[in-house]
Simulated scan of single mutants.
Amino acid sequence: MPPIEEITPAQARERQASGHLLVDVREPGEHALGLPKGALAVPRASLESDPARWAPDRSAALLLVCGSGKRSLLAAQALQAQGYSQLASVVGGFERWRAEGLPEDAGAPEDADFLDRYSRHLRLPQVGLDGQRRLAAAKVLVVGAGGLGSPAAYYLAAAGVGQLILADDDVVDRSNLQRQILHTDARIGQRKVDSARIALSALNPRLDIRTEPVRVTADNVAALVAPADVVVDGADNFPVRYLLSDACVQLAKPLVYGAVHRFEGQVSVFDAGRRRGTAPCYRCLFPEPPAPEDAPNCAEAGVLGVLPGVIGLLQATEALKLLLGLGDSLAGRLLHFDALAMKFRETRLAPDPACPVCAPGRVFPGYSDDPLACASAPALR
């Protein structure tokens, strides 16, 4: 077969004016960023699978454009193999088209800041414009603005989650700065949720940030969890972890769990509220909290400063996957990370058929702050 002709955007514009059909083979999320004037927006896979839908005449002249010129060339080769004879690919693609100031059609109705800020998401077929809109409409509760909550909230904010609800009753201490990256030396003594708001708003001013300078208790946990689509657990004590788990079961919310200790960390997703009998809750993993001497907090045992960053980043990843409906979540799996060995390992988790909270048919026992019920030993973050 003869080689595909490659032409400049200016040449494509001239040929388009003489009646040649210009087809933009980028993905819908990329089309949202704008298109060459008069171009037909057809994703490459759709065009290659059924070209006759858009170009029934195989002898008609077709001009193909993508982002940089690579995909359009591949699409042209695929069409050539199907009998199309007059094909040309635009060198440099839409990037060069725009750089040369050629006329464009508007893409999505979202504002320029939205389209530019999230352009790398829009280019992902698995996310695209619909996925980004879903993120913009989402609400995530992040409990704890410390070691785990800092990186998790930072990446959720950057990704475009519409509302972050931050719950933490602590203030910034100098010892926090080694790992709690939302805070700065200048904000020592401020409430962590206020310090977090400053950092997150500076990163993404589109965010709606709701701060809750409170400790999670049996009295307020349901109200905190209820509006959220996903809950990220960055808590620093076992009573709060049990309360969050119980509320997420009762209100059918997915809970993204994370914990760190010295050089090791854990991540999982507890989704028993939406998947009774098939996915575990936190109580299925820890029916009873460990003794205080078996779970010293960071102040007592220490923690490698970057470790919460790794675990918090994984929590943010799981939260985004849940919001977008992508991939396989960690529900039913506990991911362990050993920083010293730089190894991950996975443990399968099954729901406990005798779980007092999430077992199918179990009547919800209510929320409790009783240290005998959920202990007062510190969890780690």
Rank of each mutant, 00 (worst) to 15 (best):
R262M: 09
D294Y: 13
R53Y: 10
G305S: 08
I4Q: 11
A350G: 06
A359R: 00
Q315V: 01
H121R: 08
A138W: 07
A61L: 09
L62F: 00
L244P: 01
S150W: 03
G149M: 08
R117K: 12
D168G: 04
L313Y: 15
S119W: 11
A319G: 02
P289Q: 02
V303P: 07
R191V: 12
L79I: 08
D105R: 10
Y257T: 07
V91D: 11
R197F: 00
V256C: 08
G107V: 09
V249Y: 08
T347M: 14
N220K: 08
A41D: 07
P109M: 00
T211E: 12
G107M: 11
P353F: 03
L40P: 10
R120M: 15
P9F: 06
V225P: 06
R96A: 13
R210V: 13
V140D: 07
S89K: 09
R241G: 00
S68R: 12
L207I: 01
T211W: 06
A167K: 06
A272S: 08
D370H: 01
Q11Y: 10
A226G: 10
D294A: 14
P125C: 00
A76E: 04
F238G: 01
G305L: 08
Q77H: 05
A279S: 13
V260Q: 06
D169C: 14
R44C: 05
E264R: 11
L200R: 02
G305N: 06
G302Y: 09
P227E: 06
D169E: 13
G277C: 04
G146H: 04
E95G: 15
C284I: 04
A196Y: 01
R117G: 01
S89Y: 04
F270P: 00
L62G: 00
S329D: 14
G332K: 03
A10M: 15
E110M: 09
A331D: 09
A354W: 05
R262F: 05
S245K: 05
D246F: 06
L203M: 11
D170C: 02
E104I: 13
A75S: 11
N297D: 15
G160D: 07
L129K: 02
A222P: 09
V225R: 00
A291H: 14
N176V: 04
C355N: 02
V42W: 10
H336K: 10
Q126A: 12
A301P: 12
N220C: 09
D105P: 10
P213N: 10
A159V: 03
Q77R: 14
Y84I: 09
Q126E: 15
D369S: 01
S68H: 13
Y282A: 04
S245D: 13
S46F: 12
V25W: 04
L285T: 02
T211V: 14
S49D: 15
L63I: 11
A145W: 03
G67L: 14
S175E: 13
P109H: 02
D208Y: 13
D185L: 12
P351D: 07
A153D: 01
P254G: 05
N204D: 07
V306F: 11
L285W: 03
L323S: 07
V42C: 04
V240L: 08
Y367P: 00
A10N: 13
V143K: 02
A81M: 11
A373N: 03
M1I: 09
L285R: 12
D111C: 02
L314H: 12
K343L: 14
V91C: 14
